[in-house]
Design a protein around this nucleic acid. Structure first.
Lengths: 345, 345
DNA sequence: TTGAAAGCGCTAACAG
DNA sequence: CTGTTAGCGCTTTCAA
């Protein structure tokens, strides 16, 4: 029933090869026959069968994006950037969203072996050495976003700098007893943010206090970056009693929101009793008045796609690095006024 | 380089047809050869080439979802539901996100003719009669979510009821001068919500006041459901001076948030000076304390996928209808206390 | 049960 | 420049 390349060829009185050339606008074709074929295509309302094209070309014009879908805004913004570029380059996007129950390995394997996609974007998910090797061996283009692997292309944000900026802002605001609430330490961003936190303390010769650091290793959820974990962590800090910190750098906004809830539930105030700085600048942050560290999420998505398509086009080597700068967005949660502080220089 | 069905056949000492049968676990195969083939598959780490399968079967196991991507939470929740089901049924999801610049027609056409997908989910976007006919004629399964067309499958929320609930709540709270801020009237939900609003007024014999109704037809953006539009609309209402309404039903939370901003900017208070009720129950609503109408977004996504896959499996006829109930979520923005009021009965 | 062979709709190499 | 033909990797008759 659907019209094929043969129908077009017959109607135009040419061979299918010629039709194919017109479709893929090959230069070696006379203007005259080209017109004729185009007329036939229009008349029959012909459109190539992409699946057949994919098989013949061994190219699908599709990429996969494997992404955790539960956390909201960060991913939405990233996806927006990804979509922008993908549409621009006329590719299609298959979305694999990973939640706690279904393991990312399944999707990685799919992407690798089913050959339904030309490349993959792995977002905020770590990749095992085993899979990294597989991708390299198979030559399947992959770029990591907000994640890291020494042998693969990585697009990240400067987590160390971000944490540094956030904590420094607290110090600059006059706080000394500054705690940190982190995600699970198995998460790379979590470790890097801790590094930034420690770095400022050291720089200002404030000793690192074990009691002031809470990693959300206790939660079930993937990486500890969630509201409930932030709530619980903050409770622990408050339970320190007189020893409790006067300011907290929380390694994600969503945790920070949980933390703020905890503070309020204990009848304390933000920022008068405890100042809070977050990380991410999710949409809620603005409404809550949370001082936080902003990442150029959309831009990261765009760059990721550009890089991936570039790799698909010409098999470039792995090891591309792009680290985005962060910026501090000052709001009310630590007693400042609304401004954007540019990144360090 | 990659291993094909021929490699497996050779290694197992059988024909490719047999291998194919094992892959698709056809019943007509002896347990013995089956084992042998499976061993070969395992040994070679063979995985079928999905694109080739798609071509041969004329089935891609992929569906497209065409969705506006700018508005945030509503779509994220819906997508989550869609993803849940899609993963469960082992399908893949191609995401086409429509923004102001690229027209949905392009994606509809793609989905229809490229044959890269087995069916499409059209979310919150209206479809022209022309395209509806095309889909019906081609027999391409399509289901509309949060949209409507008489000849297609539709999954919607009871907008009339929702608007009714919201407005009734204001009346029950003692307000009489109740305005409505709506989206662009070309949007179907906008029209239905207006209908619900008018219905309560009539029921309580409150005359409909032209000045108290503002449709956001003035904005550039697709449907008027955005923060800026809400802000402007509210300004107009406030500009009514002494005549201004004491309560407003705003047809989306995001507009309501803009409206609240406007109220505050004019040094008025919510709810003391103007009470506000929204629609959607986006994540922000909770943080802002906005009373609103909740839609079962995730559930809608799940049902949509189930229906679509059902249609793909057995060419059922169009005209499926599923309308979800809404419920009112009472928060502070109209002077009440936090509770969930079940839908009408 | 199983193997051989004919497509699925297209691309691309090869002749002419 | 253009037609012919051999695949792309699989499914699915059709015989055996």
């Amino acid at each position: 029933m659907p019209v094929t390349i043969y129908d077009v060829a017959k109607k135009a009185g040419v061979g299918i090869g010629t039709v194919s050339r017109v479709i893929n606008d090959s230069p070696q074709i006379s203007e005259c026959t080209k017109k004729r074929v185009q007329a036939a295509i229009l008349e029959l309302n012909y459109q190539p069968h992409t699946v057949a094209q994919s098989l013949a070309r061994n190219k699908t014009n599709t990429i996969a994006c494997i992404i955790p879908f539960f956390t909201g805004y960060f991913f939405v913004e990233l996806l927006r950037g990804i979509q922008n570029k993908i549409t621009e380059y006329k590719y299609d996007l298959i979305l694999y969203s990973v939640d706690v129950t279904n393991k990312k390995e399944h999707f990685l394997q799919k992407a690798l072996k089913e050959r339904k996609v030309d490349g993959v974007l792995l977002v905020s998910l770590e990749i095992t050495k085993e899979f990294a090797d597989k991708f390299i061996k198979c030559g399947t283009p992959i770029v990591l976003v907000d994640s890291y692997h020494p042998n693969l292309d990585c697009i990240t944000v400067d987590n160390v700098e971000g944490a540094y900026l956030a904590t420094k802002h607290l110090i600059d605001s006059g706080y000394q007893k500054i705690a940190m609430i982190d995600g699970q330490l198995k998460s790379i961003p979590a470790r890097l943010r801790l590094e930034g936190y420690k770095k400022v303390l050291q720089h200002y010769q404030i000793p690192f206090n074990e009691n002031y650091f809470v990693a959300c290793d206790f939660t079930q959820e993937a990486d500890g970056f969630n509201k409930e974990a932030g709530y619980i962590a903050m409770c622990r800090l408050i339970d320190l009693g007189a020893e409790r910190p006067r300011a907290v750098f929380v390694s994600s906004d969503i945790q920070a929101i949980g933390a703020i809830q905890a503070i309020k539930d204990r009848n304390l105030r933000v920022p008068q009793d405890i100042a809070v700085v977050g990380f991410d600048d999710i949409e809620l942050a603005q409404f809550v008045g949370l001082t936080t560290v902003r990442q150029p999420m959309m831009k990261m998505g765009e760059v990721a796609v550009e890089r991936l398509l570039e790799k698909i086009a010409n098999q470039t080597t792995n090891g591309f690095r792009r680290r985005f700068r962060t910026e501090l967005v000052v709001r009310e949660s630590c007693g400042g006024v609304n401004t954007v502080v540019k990144n360090l220089n």
